[in-house]
Amino acid sequence: MSGVSKWYGTFKVLNEVSLEIQRGERVVVCGPSGSGKSTLIRCINRLEEHQKGDIYVKGIELNDSVKNIAAIRSSLGMVFQSFNLFPHLTVLENLTIGPTLVRHMKRKDAEERAMHFLRKVRIPEQAHKYPLQLSGGQQQRVAIARSLCMEPEIMLFDEPTSALDPEMIKEVLDTMIELAESGMTMIVVTHEMGFARTVADNVILMADGNIVERAEPGEFFSHPKHERTRTFLDQILKH
């Protein structure tokens, strides 16, 4: 991603952002509210369209070509702050709808794969419930499993735990840590600094549409180079 800019109307949300992420790398993005973190990762899978600069995912350019967008999206998984499960489908159907409809997988194989990932996120017994009958933490784990069923190579997380109660945050973070240990490339927007410290290869601080600092977690937390990072960390760690 290089020199990417995006405007909402006349408001510039992303300001010439350049960023390169290697296969297998885990990157945590943090920064104050409204700094453009969500916009950044939503641009990567075209939920938002960038207006300037280039984005390449696995060497494929993200442009208006429907084919390229589909190719890029098929290697990306996305987890949202508000889960966005399909409320009219059971947990199992939420997990199989992508593989059967998009990948033309046989129902039986898709269900097998779905149960495999439900066991991974440790809620196989909820397969036949509806999303709204689950706790927030369970819903978010279903959402993670739903993305994994599409066998993505890169997972994007947009504040996956900020809509959850403290007890549930841990179960979701545990799932994400396991995912990281399996070698998945991950870009995670989060304010969970503990997670950043233990899992991330790199931590990025965004402010006002700019990447202010990018460093390894040790470096980032103990010797931040920028004044902006220091004030942000002070604020966050005070709580």
Partner: peptide, 23 residues
């Protein structure tokens, strides 16, 4: 229908008609 439903379907790479008819 909240926007998140469309976004979740899009991130699963569903087409317009798949999203419309199934979600």
């Amino acid at each position: 229908i909240p926007r998140g439903q469309y976004e979740a379907a899009a991130s699963l790479n569903m087409t317009y008609w798949q999203t419309t008819l199934r979600i």
